[in-house]
Every structure is written in C-alpha cells, then in structure tokens.
Simulated scan of single mutants.
Amino acid sequence: MPHERNPGIPLDLSWVTEGRVNLAATKRRADQHKVRRSVKMEWQAAWLLRAVTCIDLTTLSGDDTEANVKRLCFKAKRPIRRDILETLGVADKKITTGAVCVYPNRVNEAVKHLEGTNIPVASVAAGFPAGQTMLKHRLMEIEEAVAAGAHEIDIVITRPYVLQSKWQQLYDEVKAMRQACGEAHLKTILATGELGSLDNVYRASVICMMAGADVIKTSTGKEGVNATFPVALTMLRAIREYHQRTGFKVGFKPAGGIRSAKDAVSWLAIMKEELGDDWTKPDLFRIGASSLLTDIERQLFHCATGRYAAAHQLAMS
C-alpha cells in the first residue's frame, strides 16, 4: 500500500536547535556497517534486482541531447538483459528502474520516450546544483518542469541558510518549493558536503521534512564530498524521529559516488537496519546514479552464468 504523503508540520525551532549528533559514535557505527554487511551469493541476485528498482537513472550533462535521453529511457524500461532475467527466473517481474532524472528542458523528451510505462520522470530544478539564483526564478523553474510532465522534482536548498542558522528562511523556502511542486513529489538535496557538520545535516533534514519534503537527498553529485555513511546515518535517524513524532514517512536518496553493485547492496542493508523493509522499496528509497546500473547488470550476469560479461555485451545506461 502506498504511504501517506508527508504534508509537513509547523516549524518547531526547539526540536531543530536541541538536536545533537554524536560524531564519534556515528563514525563508529558507519565503519562497522562497511566492514560487516555483505550478502551471500544465493541472496545476492535478489538484493541487486531490488537495487535496480530503486535507481534514479540519471543524465545531467551539458551535452545532453534527445538521443541521450531516449537511450536512458530505453535502458530504464529494460535495465537488465532479458536472457539474464530468464536464467534467474524473474523475467515476469517487469523490473524497471525507479525513475529517469534529467534537466528541466529534457523533461518533455523523457515523458515521450517513457509513455505507456509507470516509470516516473524526475527533474532537477531550483538552480541546480548551486541553488544561487533568485527564489522567484527557482520556483518558476519548478513549475515549468512540472508543467512539462515531471512527477518528481529534485531541488537544492540554500546552503548559507544552514551555515548561518537561518532556520525560518530555510523552512519558508522549502515550503514554497513544495507548493510549487503541486502533485509532484519534492526531493530536497541538502548538499551535505557543504554544510560543515553533522549537527547541521540533522537540522537541515528536520527542517526540510517539517516543510513538506517527500524525500531528503544527500548530494547533487557535484560536490567534493557526496554520499557517505556517517551523513546517511544522521539523515536516516532524523527520518526515523520524524516518523515517530508525526506518523509520516519520508524517503531517502543518497547520490554521488555510488558506482558498484557492492555499494548498492550496502546502502540497501543500512536502510533495512535503520528504518525497516518499507525503506528498501522505490517509493521511499532511491539511489541517484548514472554508472551504477552497468556494474549491477555485470554482477547479475555473473550470478546467472558464473562468468563476467565484457563491456560490449551490456547496453549502455
């Protein structure tokens, strides 16, 4: 059953300012997870297939053309070669990626090439990746992406609001963006590598959820530091606390630097451990990636045949 969408709540500054993160304990938990969590071969294919369904298959390049978008949409519809799926006994599962993510001016092309599927089109907006344009222009960009057919909008927050503890301004900004999205889901990118501390990551996470974010996301993928497990633990526990206090479920999306099948399984495992099975499914968990799918398909080829595929044997993503 689909979960109820997070409507947001009034800004609670006492909750925000009282939040503290134990840096040493968070790093210790993250380090333990990285070395202890693995999936045995007999279960590996199932975990990798679940990871495929959670991928936001992304192209965000300055030289994107309709041909790029068309190829990406084709791969999203058929992310794993059919003969691999048949060997694994899951050809009837209709496995697709979680979404296709493009720039706003490519949304109509993605919508066209995904017609007849249930794959949502996501669009970055709001002055991505820096978020330094005027708010009225950022809101206009969101509205235009939604009008073009985007089902999900990935926005970037104003990082100086966090660095200067301007919590009311951050709340108002995200709330205005949520309103601009209408029925489209709002994914707020914190750009955690630029927030200075895990305390700030926690506070920004809580405020974005209070303002109505459907998903909180680590990074644009353009920062020097992107998705890390200490940051993830901080955000996941903010999500858990928000759910406990309000009853509303908010999703999570790590992005940037996630390139291997092993990484994808590790991210799924931490979602299961920290939040439960509901957060290992695409309505509450996404992985922002462009090259990850190739490695997952290569590992699934190995699960099916016992050998690895050469690069030319797998379609580009």
Rank of each mutant, 00 (worst) to 15 (best):
N6F: 02
P7E: 00
P7N: 01
G8V: 00
I9G: 00
D12F: 07
D12Y: 05
L13T: 11
L13C: 08
S14G: 14
W15F: 15
W15L: 15
W15Y: 14
G19F: 11
V21S: 12
A24E: 12
K27C: 14
R29A: 07
A30P: 02
K34N: 07
V35T: 10
R36G: 12
K40F: 14
Q44K: 15
L48S: 02
L49P: 03
T53Q: 08
I55K: 07
I55H: 05
T58F: 04
T59F: 09
L60G: 10
E66K: 11
A67E: 11
V69P: 00
K70A: 05
R71S: 15
R71C: 13
R71M: 15
K77I: 15
K77W: 09
P79A: 15
R81L: 15
I84K: 02
L85H: 10
V90M: 08
D92M: 01
K94Y: 11
T96H: 09
T97M: 08
V100P: 09
C101L: 10
R106H: 12
E109P: 10
E109W: 13
A110S: 08
A110P: 10
H113Q: 12
E115W: 08
E115S: 07
T117H: 10
I119H: 03
V121H: 04
A122I: 07
G127F: 13
A130G: 11
G131I: 04
L135F: 04
H137Q: 14
H137P: 12
R138C: 09
R138Q: 11
L139K: 01
E141F: 06
D154I: 13
D154R: 10
D154W: 02
I157K: 01
T158S: 14
Y161N: 02
V162E: 01
L163E: 09
Q164M: 15
Q168L: 13
Q168V: 13
K175F: 06
M177R: 03
C181D: 06
C181S: 07
G182P: 00
H185K: 15
K187T: 09
L190K: 01
G193T: 05
G196T: 04
S197G: 06
L198H: 02
N200R: 06
R203S: 00
V206Q: 04
M209F: 09
M209Q: 10
M210D: 00
G212L: 03
V215C: 12
K217Y: 00
T218C: 06
N226R: 06
T228H: 00
F229K: 00
F229E: 00
V231L: 04
V231G: 01
V231D: 05
R237E: 05
R237I: 06
E241D: 14
Y242D: 05
V250D: 04
A255M: 14
R259M: 10
A261K: 05
A264D: 02
A264I: 08
V265N: 01
S266I: 11
W267G: 05
W267L: 06
L268M: 13
K272A: 14
E273G: 08
E274N: 06
G276Q: 02
D278W: 13
D283N: 10
D283V: 08
R286V: 11
A289T: 08
S290E: 07
S291K: 03
D295A: 04
D295G: 04
E297Q: 11
L300V: 03
A309K: 07
A310V: 13
A311F: 10
A311W: 10
Q313E: 15
M316Q: 15
S317I: 01
